[in-house]
Write a protein that binds this DNA or RNA. Structure first.
Lengths: 301, 301
DNA sequence: TAACAAATCGTTCAAATCGTCCAAATCGTC
DNA sequence: GACGATTTGGACGATTTGAACGATTTGTTA
């Protein structure tokens, strides 16, 4: 993996839940191997720390803190990540999948990219294998549950950093629709864009969305359409909802594989996107986030 | 955030009202799990301590000494908690609800108690208000989503204490059923009882449960039945599933408001419970956790 | 290149924890 | 209630730990 990853004494001390002085002493006593910079700073090899911690019974508060935040950008191979995630989901390895998905945040990957370039391809492959009869619905459900779990964990992370007043966005999956995964991804993306998403979840009637418009006064409405059973009734109910949103000046973002070209041609909407990246851009344009520049030495932590 | 995940033997001894030597002995006897520093100091995970306090009836003097955020008094008023949770859910205050639900873990409350005495009553009141037309489905969905989110966060906490090999349990909500909340609670309860739950989620066909039996070889199968649309087809499919589980010696635990007395009278099952406390007891009996040796003189023989 | 903030260095020293001993308290059984 | 087995917890010196200090190194910004 990242064989050449160095970590500092402070990082290790935080990860293991002991004091910095103790880490220094362990290095000096030869318990932990370390290299030295010409100036005398200790540089511990990540692999050494992990190995020693696992082999001996060292305390391990949060080994995840040891993983170096890769330089944001092209250093992360999304294709490989997606393939690894697929393999983990295929075998029901929840721990591995969680590690992969939650690791993307540390790598600085955007939630929209995680959705479009990692999770979507992996779940698509699962779906294809299911259609081909090579796996059971069980495997697809298990994979979905594992993804959901990881997404909730990511959301929890983002929520803990939530700060000022955020505009409200409301959305969900209309009635008859079951797939909660997409809506959960939307929630994550909007959260990252500075919104305060209210996910009404799967199987929500159109009337409830209208109710939410008047009660929550959102500045954005999203709908995830996975499949449309009866286009006629769907269209009628949707148009009613859209009209009400339009009257209040609330933009409506729709997406999902249920929106065929034919269907979309007769649907009014503010924006349509076949991916979360599009949604993220649209949401950001509605509510541009203030950005700050870090000062000093923002490495590590 | 979780900076104080590790506690010392002295802290635990003060919190539980026992001597330091006793804590050390418990660790050495494997009653309390702990890591060791290279110097020999024991490092106890706060979560491990809370779990043991929760599962056995350990003395619980003052948990606040373990962590400033813990409540000073050990008496937790579940009724008040449930009422507060209801109010938070009713108004869509996700942050408050999360705080209440996730706080129960720190109070040493068992997951089953959280489910039966806190979440179930609160959601029941929401359901009643909905039936009376005083709130919309929207509010019920929003409340469910908020609960789900908090439960996932709790699960994440429990999962982070990755332990040894655990027996596998499989379960979910059969086809046509949408309520994921109950199945999520089951997952949490089983996790706390030392199992490794695989939740197949809502809307899972009976055939997939059978598939899971042969492929995952679980030692427990759970089914959450929220509503039964067509008793005849339901019964036929269920019986087939039960027979297969029975042949393999896998116990079947069922529960949920969909199981009326009439229905249950013609259903075979290993155990039925109208609450998570019952399930927790049953699961613990199947897979007893390490306990202290019985006192007194060893039996003759 | 110079300036600056943050992180790390080496050192000291008080506090906490270790392992071990043994007496007192507690429990199950007779 | 008496007995024996077991658990408990205080005390001891030896060891480990971690916070504080000023001096130095490191990486970014101007």
């Amino acid at each position: 993996m990242d064989d050449l990853a160095y970590v500092s004494t402070a990082q290790v001390s935080r990860a293991l839940g002991v004091g910095v002085t103790t880490i220094k002493r362990w290095v000096d006593d030869g318990i932990l191997p370390a290299h030295r910079t010409p100036g005398g700073h200790r540089k511990l090899l990540l692999a050494d720390v992990l190995r020693l911690v696992r082999e001996n019974d060292f305390p391990q508060l949060d080994l995840a803190r040891l993983h170096p935040s890769l330089p944001s950008g092209s250093a992360v191979d999304e294709t490989k990540l997606s393939r690894d995630l697929y393999a983990a989901l295929r075998h029901g390895d929840g721990a591995a999948a969680r590690f992969l998905i939650e690791g993307t945040e540390r790598c600085g990957m955007r939630a929209a990219t995680l959705a479009d370039a990692v999770i979507a391809p992996a779940m698509h492959r699962i779906g294809v294998e299911w259609e081909q009869g090579r796996i059971d619905v069980m495997h697809e459900h298990r994979a979905t549950q594992i993804c959901l779990e990881s997404l909730y964990a990511l959301k929890s992370h983002l929520l803990s950093q939530a700060t000022q007043a955020r505009p409200v966005a409301v959305g969900g999956v209309p009635e008859g629709q079951l797939h909660a995964l997409a809506s959960q991804l939307v929630e994550l993306v909007l959260l990252e864009c500075g919104w305060s998403p209210v996910n009404l979840g799967p199987n929500t009637p159109f009337s409830s969305f209208r109710k939410a418009l008047t009660e929550l006064r959102p500045r954005l409405l999203w709908l995830s359409i996975h499949r449309v059973e009866e286009p006629t009734t769907f269209l009628a109910a949707y148009r009613e909802l859209y009209d009400e949103a339009h009257k209040s000046g609330i933009p409506v973002a729709i997406g999902g594989p249920g929106l065929t070209d034919d269907l979309r041609a007769v649907m009014p909407y503010t924006t349509y996107g076949d991916g979360m990246t599009h949604l993220a851009d649209f949401a950001s344009s509605l509510h541009p986030r203030p950005r700050r520049r870090p000062r000093g030495r923002p490495r590590g932590t």
